[in-house]
Simulated assay, not measured.
Amino acid sequence: MAHANPELIQALRRTAQKLSSGNPYQWGHMGSCNCGNLAQELTQLTKAQIHEFAMQGRGDWREQVEEFCPTSGLPMNLLISDMLNHGLTTSDLQNLERLSDKKVLARIPLERRDKMRHNYREDVVLYLNEWANQLEEDLLPSIKLDLSFMNQEKAVPTLETA
C-alpha cells in the first residue's frame, strides 16, 4: 500500500471532494476516470493532457501500469513516475482503477461493499475517503509531538506590595 504522507492523504480527500462536487467523471476516459482524477490532483495536469499521454500507449490504466517503464521517457510513464513519487505504488493505481484494495474494502460495511461498482462516482468517492482514512491511521503513530513545554512550571504572576 501507498507510503502514508500528508500530501497524498490530502490529494485523496481533495479528489473525493471534487468528484462529490461534480468534477467530470467518466470511467472510460483516461483523464477523468478513477486514476485520472487523482492524477489531475497530484500532477496538476488537465484531464485532456492525461488522456493525450495515455493515448500514446495502449490499454487502460491497469495495462499501462503493468507496462510501466520509468526510463522510457514516454509521457504516460513520466506521469506514473510522478504519481509514484507522491507515495503511491503501481498496485495502488491498479487497485484504484478497479476499487479492489482489500485493506480499503475491508473498511466498508459488507452490505455496502457488495454493491460497489468500480465505475460509479459515489463508490469512487467512498473508496478514496476510506483509503485516505486508512493512510491517516497508518501515519498517525509515526508523528511525534514535543509536548515537553506542558511539563514546565508556569510562572504564576503575583502581586507585590510596596
Rank of each mutant, 00 (worst) to 15 (best):
L93D: 05
E160C: 00
M55R: 09
L139M: 10
N34Y: 10
L84K: 06
T161Q: 05
R62W: 02
S91Q: 15
R113G: 04
E97T: 15
D92A: 03
S32A: 14
H118I: 01
V156T: 10
Q134C: 05
L139C: 00
I50K: 07
L8R: 03
N37A: 13
L96G: 02
M1D: 04
Q56N: 02
G28C: 12
Q26C: 08
I108K: 00
Q44Y: 06
P24K: 13
F53M: 09
E137L: 07
N5Q: 07
W61N: 09
A155S: 10
T43L: 07
D92Y: 10
E136W: 00
G31T: 06
E41D: 05
R14P: 00
T90L: 07
Y120C: 13
Q134N: 12
G28A: 13
H86S: 12
L110C: 00
S100A: 15
D138V: 08
F68G: 00
N85T: 02
L88G: 05
S32P: 00
G87W: 11
M30L: 12
R13Q: 15
G59T: 12
R113P: 04
T15Q: 02
R107F: 00
E52D: 15
G22P: 02
A39N: 03
A48P: 01
P24N: 12
N37M: 05
Y127W: 09
P24V: 11
A2E: 13
G31E: 15
M76N: 08
Q40L: 10
T43E: 06
N119Y: 08
F53V: 04
G22K: 05
W131S: 03
D146E: 09
T161E: 13
T46K: 01
Q56F: 02
E160F: 04
V125A: 07
